[in-house]
Amino acid sequence: MRDLARDIVLGKTRAIARGISLAENDSLGREELIDLLHPHTGKARILGITGPPGAGKSTLADLLIAGERRKGHKVAVVAVDPSSPFTGGALLGDRLRMQSHAEDEHVFIRSMASRGHLGGVSRATVDAIKVLDAAGFDTVIVETIGVGQTEVDIIELTDLVLLVLVPGMGDEIQAMKAGVMEIGDIFVINKSDKEGADKLRTEVEYVLGFKYAHEMEKMNPVCMVSAKMKQGLEALEEEAEEWFQHLSLSGLLEQKRKERIQKELKRIFSAKIHELLDKKMDFYNNVEEWAEMIYQKKVQPYRFINESLHDFLKKESE
């Protein structure tokens, strides 16, 4: 594992790819690898791109890669697409829009299937970001699956989120609903050459105006972009740069990253507790029998679990 971690830090492509697979497959050594890489993380800017299916997230990612490369930055992309809930298979096609960078050795693109994880990313995306950060990429772009209204994991994984919207998705009531409108740092209205783009902008600004009625200076930027016509990208890049500067100078970036670690620790903690108790109480072998007792109305679900846990903890402390 030390060799793999070393090669990842040296930026060797095969090692980076293998490290991500190790995380994806939850293979032996995953925890050790992530711990070995930890000291090398924290340098990359982590940018999220999210939005509904067909909004142009991949095309926008393609153009952002080009922009980063012009600045001489090394860029990695993690593009997540859904796994079929029926077969577990996935057709990962985001990369299709970014293949113009396929031969550039300073661009690394990885497609990931969501593998049953909800929230717009996969369970291993957090690890993939760490691998890429440790490998020395200046910018890591995470493209989520096309999201609906509750897939908000991306804010917990990234420093800055671009929410991509397109005209023709519904009226302002859609935009006012909880969820998707609450997750963007920068709002990108793509396909600005299409009819309805200006109206959408007005609606988005209207909704944001409500949120920041008393502190308009905090209002998120709204950028009009046409990825197809290559319009509005420079303005978007400038807004992103400014937002980043603001985040790091105000200390918000540090705060954000610490919050992210807290959430990660919570996640690891509850997974470990879960695993431990499952094993100790032999949950999976007993669950059928327990369900039968509850079905027969011999016991009540909460009472039964509370008492089982209580008995178990009592036995442990003796």
């Binding site: 796994s83 079929s84 077969t87 577990g88 298979g89 996935a90 057709l91 990962l92 096609g93 990369r95 299709l96 293949q99 396929a102 031969e103 497609s111 299937a113």
Partner: peptide, 18 residues
């Protein structure tokens, strides 16, 4: 994909290097 594999598709006219 329907058989349960993860398939990456990259489109037409790819060079051997890419």
């Amino acid at each position: 994909k329907d058989e349960g594999y993860e398939v990456i598709y990259t489109g037409i006219r790819q060079t051997a290097e890419s």
